[in-house]
Simulated scan of single mutants.
Amino acid sequence: MDFKYFANPELYVGFLADKVACTGCDIVKECFDATGFYGQEKIDAICTDCLGNGKLIGRSISTCEGDATRLKQQLRQLNPSLSWPDIANVVKLKTDELEKTTPQLVTWQDWLWPCSDGDYCRFIGYGSQVLYKKIAHDGRGKRLFIQSLTMDSDDVDADELWDEYLPEKEIKDYQDSSDHSTLFYVFKSLHSDEIKTIWDTE
Score class of each variant (00 low, 15 high):
Thr63Phe: 07
Asp152His: 15
Thr95Ile: 08
Gly141Glu: 01
Lys134Val: 06
Trp113Thr: 04
Ile87Ala: 01
Pro85Cys: 01
Lys72Glu: 00
Ser60Trp: 14
Ile135Trp: 15
His137Asn: 09
Asp159Pro: 10
Ser60Ile: 15
Lys92Phe: 06
Ser60Thr: 15
Ile61Gly: 15
Asn79Val: 09
Pro85Trp: 00
Gly54Thr: 00
Ser116Gly: 04
Leu144Gly: 03
Gly125Pro: 05
Val90His: 12
Asp152Lys: 15
Pro85Thr: 08
Arg140Tyr: 14
Tyr126Glu: 02
Asp117Gln: 06
Phe145Asn: 11
Ile61Val: 14
Leu131Trp: 07
Gln129Leu: 08
Pro103His: 08
Lys142His: 09
Lys133Gly: 01
Ile124Asp: 03
Leu82Val: 07
Lys133Trp: 02
Ala68Trp: 15
Gln104Thr: 06
Val156Pro: 04
Thr69Ile: 04
Glu97Ser: 04
Glu99His: 11
Arg140Pro: 08
Leu105Gly: 12
Trp108Ala: 09
Lys134Trp: 04
Asp119Ile: 03
Cys64Gly: 02
Arg140Asp: 14
Val90Met: 13
Glu65Pro: 05
Gly66Tyr: 06
Gly54Arg: 01
Ile135Tyr: 14
Thr95Asp: 04
Asn53Glu: 07
Arg70Pro: 02
Gly139Val: 08
Glu99Met: 12
Ile146Phe: 15
Asn53Val: 03
Phe145Lys: 11
Asn53Tyr: 00
Gln73Leu: 07
Gly141Thr: 02
Phe123Met: 14
Phe145Val: 12
Leu78Arg: 02
Ser148Gln: 01
Phe145Asp: 06
Lys100Val: 04
Pro85Gln: 03
Gln147Ile: 06
Ser116Ala: 09
Gln129His: 10
Tyr132Val: 11
Pro114Asp: 05
Gln77Arg: 13
Leu161Trp: 06
Trp111Arg: 00
Ile87Thr: 01
Arg59Cys: 07
Ser81Phe: 10
Gln129Ala: 10
Thr101Gln: 07
Pro80Arg: 12
Trp108Arg: 00
Asn89His: 12
Cys121Val: 07
Gln77Ser: 11
Leu82Gly: 08
Pro80Gln: 12
Thr101Ser: 03
Pro114His: 08
Lys142Cys: 09
Asn89Thr: 13
Gly58Val: 09
Leu82Ala: 10
Leu112Trp: 00
Arg122Lys: 12
Trp162Tyr: 13
Asn79Ile: 08
Ser148His: 04
Ala136Val: 09
Gly118His: 05
Glu65Lys: 15
Phe123Val: 14
Ile61Ala: 14
Gly52Phe: 01
Asp154Thr: 12
Gln129Phe: 10
Trp108Gly: 11
Glu160Asn: 15
Ile146Trp: 14
Arg76Glu: 09
Leu93Ser: 15
Val106Asn: 11
Cys115Asn: 05
Leu144Asp: 03
Ser116Arg: 09
Phe123Arg: 15
Leu71Asn: 00
Thr95Leu: 07
Ala68Ile: 11
Arg70Lys: 00
Leu161Gln: 06
Ser148Pro: 03
Val130Ser: 12
